[in-house]
């Protein structure tokens, strides 16, 4: 009985060695197979590949007011986007003007966007009834001066399509 146990123990000892060595060899085969195939390298050479780098269309980069070729944007100062934004990253500064029919209207003076507090949740873009906003594909946001992160989105000299002046 004791002899049988000893033989079993010796057999188990050699089986452990065999099992261990084969399992290690299997692991080495996986890494070895990647070593000999340089086509599996997935590194992208950034920043040299900036010219050909294209982000997806839906990528949430930076907020933009859409301007058409006549430098007109579509914002009608309804303040919906500023209300939807959870952390107050949109500030709309407007001024009141006399309209043609004698009533005061609000037109857009400065559309201030605080990139430093934006959490890219995307609640502003679908909330605009005039489809005035979009996210562009810019992802390099790093600056050395924090004041550059407060952006004014309406371009100088632009006027609003929504206001019939």
């Amino acid at each position: 009985m004791a002899l049988l146990k000893t033989i079993k123990a010796i057999g188990k000892y050699f089986y452990n060695i065999y099992d261990g060595v084969t399992s290690l060899a299997r692991g080495m085969k996986v890494t070895g197979s990647y070593f000999v195939k340089p086509s599996t390298i997935v590194t992208q050479k950034y920043p040299e590949n900036r010219a050909t780098l294209k982000m997806f269309d839906n990528f949430k980069g930076e907020l933009q007011l859409i301007h058409d070729e006549n430098n007109k944007h579509s914002c009608n100062v309804c303040n919906t986007c500023a209300r939807k934004c959870p952390n107050g990253s949109i500030e709309i500064i407007y001024k009141k003007v006399e309209g043609a029919d004698g009533r005061t209207k609000k037109i857009l003076d400065k559309y201030v966007y605080h990139l430093e507090t934006c959490s890219f949740c995307g609640l502003c873009v679908p909330s605009c009834d005039e489809f005035a906003l979009k996210f562009d594909q810019e992802f390099e946001h790093a600056v050395f001066d924090r004041s550059k992160l407060t952006k004014v989105l309406n371009k100088p000299g632009s006027s609003s399509k929504a206001m019939k002046e």
Binding site: Y34, F35, T43
Partner: peptide, 9 residues
């Protein structure tokens, strides 16, 4: 060598 095994340069 370790980079090649890890699919990178």
């Amino acid at each position: 060598i370790c980079a090649r095994m890890q699919n990178r340069m």
